Amino acid sequence: MGAYFASLNFLDFLGRLPAAAAQGLFWGIMALGVYITFRILDIADLTVDGTFATGGAISAVLILKGWTPWATVGAALVLGLLAGAVTGLLHTKLGIPAILAGILTQYALYSINLAIMSFKANTAISSTTRNMVMSGLDVNGSLLVCGVIVIVLIALMYWFFGTEIGEAIRATGTNQEMSKAQGINIDRMKVLGLALSNGLVAVAGSLSSQYSGFADVNAGRGSIVIGLAAVIIGEVVGNAILGKKLNFAGHLAFVVVGAILYYVVYTLILWLKMNPNLMKLFTAIIVALFLAVPYLRSRAKSSFAKAGKNSKKMEAK
Rank of each mutant, 00 (worst) to 15 (best):
G193E: 00
G193F: 00
L194A: 00
L194Q: 03
L194V: 05
L196D: 05
L196N: 05
S197I: 01
N198Q: 03
N198K: 02
N198S: 04
G199P: 01
G199E: 01
L200V: 04
L200M: 10
L200K: 05
A202S: 13
A202E: 01
A202P: 03
A202M: 06
A204L: 11
G205M: 09
G205S: 10
S206W: 10
S206P: 10
S206H: 10
S208W: 12
S209C: 14
Y211G: 03
G213S: 11
A215N: 08
V217W: 02
V217I: 15
V217H: 10
A219L: 15
A219P: 07
A219V: 11
A219Q: 13
G220E: 04
R221N: 14
G222D: 10
G222E: 07
G222H: 09
S223T: 14
S223I: 09
S223N: 13
I224G: 09
I224S: 05
V225Q: 11
I226K: 13
I226W: 08
G227W: 03
L228A: 13
L228W: 01
L228I: 13
A229E: 04
A230N: 00
V231G: 04
V231W: 00
I233A: 07
I233F: 06
E235V: 06
V236P: 02
V237E: 03
V237S: 07
V237M: 09
V237G: 02
G238D: 04
G238P: 02
N239P: 00
N239V: 10
N239A: 12
A240N: 06
A240M: 13
A240D: 02
I241H: 06
L242H: 14
G243I: 00
K245D: 03
L246C: 02
L246F: 08
N247F: 06
N247W: 04
A249D: 07
A249E: 04
G250T: 08
G250A: 07
G250I: 07
L252C: 09
F254L: 07
V255P: 07
V255L: 02
V255A: 08
V256W: 02
V256S: 06
V257R: 00
V257P: 04
G258H: 03
G258V: 05
A259K: 05
L261I: 11
Y262H: 13
Y262T: 12
V264S: 01
V264W: 01
V265D: 04
V265L: 15
V265Y: 11
T267S: 14
I269G: 02
I269F: 10
I269T: 08
L270D: 11
W271C: 03
K273Y: 06
K273G: 07
M274N: 12
N275D: 15
P276L: 09
P276T: 11
N277P: 06
M279Q: 13
M279I: 15
K280W: 12
K280F: 14
L281W: 11
T283P: 00
T283M: 12
A284L: 10
A284D: 09
A284N: 06
A284G: 15
I285F: 15
I285E: 11
V287P: 03
A288L: 15
A288I: 15
L289S: 14
L289D: 11
L291F: 11
L291H: 07
L291G: 08
L291R: 01
